[in-house]
Design a protein around this nucleic acid. Structure first.
Length: 330
DNA sequence: ACTCTACCTATAGACGAG
DNA sequence: TCTCGTCC
DNA sequence: ACTTATAGGTAGAG
């Protein structure tokens, strides 16, 4: 879920921090890329956005995300951009509430899809199929294998990929943390990228200076807006959250003010379970960085895997390999 | 009259032939 | 340059 | 048993 309404908030309150950037301008740069979000985009966009069928090999293994990886890798190679793909590890306990909700919604959509199938309602079949879709262990294994054969780099995070992307950006291992969601800023990524073909750069330094906040205050703001790790205070949205933080300086003081002021307390109700300190710690923690898996392009493995096992067209794979080797001389 | 939140629904890629 | 079908 | 997100519109509370 990322941070609720953060992009909307930044667009109106700190527009300077958001700048469009041409992919050519990223020549020579290194990016840590949140793998799951990307793979979901590839899977859903390719399967359901324009066409109405799912792409898979004859055995039924999904291939849409593999097509996405191929296109994406070539685009980065053409522009001399190094990418390190970051995969999620084990979800943290404090995220359980969010995950439960997600699974519930997935389940519900799966049932609605089955109903639509009975009624032969194509539009709703596709709609709910897209919403009940998830990446299987096998799909992820395929994705990692493909990245390996493509000579790309990837890492398994211990838990949240976002957090590791941000950490790598902070420590200078990469220039940018790429993600569609906005957690990266809360995790402290100095520079993040969003988008695929048309890219947007967001600078944390400019966010903080525009909003006149320290990073810890910004984390408190994110918690108030709504994150994956903690419920929100009812009645507090983007506007009120920012005002409260500017006035009271931090979440502890805000809560103190709320509990000692009957008028405020009535207007804004803090949930019984409000583990904001855990969320604060989670956003500020030091992240362990596991070793990066690095490989070289292997044309033979690519052909075996894509053409023989996943039924890709021989001609396309050949063309692709030629192109990749051209940009990535071994 | 107006601001703000909460909730609902919709959408998420890239290539190339013509 | 744009649209639209295709990618497996 | 199941691991990704946001944007936009709008009703309605305060």
């Amino acid at each position: 879920m990322g941070i609720k309404n953060l992009m909307k908030f930044l667009t109106s309150k700190a527009p300077d921090c958001i700048t469009p950037i041409e992919i050519q301008n990223l020549n020579g740069k290194t990016i840590a890329k949140d793998a799951y979000i990307s793979l979901y985009q590839f899977l859903i966009a390719t399967n359901f956005s324009k066409s109405n069928k799912t792409l898979s090999d004859p055995q039924g293994n999904p291939t849409a995300h593999l097509i996405g990886i191929l296109n994406n890798t070539l685009t980065y190679a053409k522009n001399n951009i190094q990418v390190i793909w970051i995969f999620d590890g084990i979800a943290p306990n404090i995220k359980q509430g969010t995950l439960d909700k997600r699974n519930e919604s997935r389940q519900k959509n799966y049932e609605m899809m089955q109903n639509a199938v009975k009624e032969d309602d194509v539009k709703n079949i596709n709609k709910h199929a897209a919403r009940s879709l998830y990446l299987t262990e096998e799909s992820i294994r395929d994705a990692k294998m493909l990245l390996k054969y493509l000579g790309q780099r990837w890492v398994d995070a211990d838990n949240e990929a976002e957090a590791l992307c941000a950490q790598m950006c902070k420590s200078g291992v990469v220039d940018y943390a790429w993600s569609e969601d906005m957690d990266s800023l809360a995790f402290g990524a100095p520079k993040m990228l969003r988008g695929n073909k048309s890219l947007t750069e967001i600078s944390l330094e400019k966010v903080l200076s525009s909003l006149q906040l320290t990073h810890n205050q910004f984390i408190d703001l994110c918690i108030l807006l709504g994150c994956d790790y903690c419920p929100t205070i009812k009645g507090v949205g983007q506007v009120t959250a920012h005002e409260l933080i500017l006035k009271y300086k931090n979440l502890d003081s805000i809560l103190e003010a709320l509990s000692s002021n009957p008028t405020l307390n009535k207007k804004y109700t803090v949930p019984n379970e409000f583990p904001y300190k855990l969320a604060q710690d989670f956003f500020s923690q030091e992240i362990n960085q596991n070793p990066i898996n690095k490989f070289v392009v292997s044309p033979k493995d690519l052909e075996d895997f894509l053409v023989l096992q996943r039924a890709f067209s021989q001609a396309k794979v050949d063309k692709y390999i030629k192109s990749l080797l051209n940009y990535n001389p071994q």
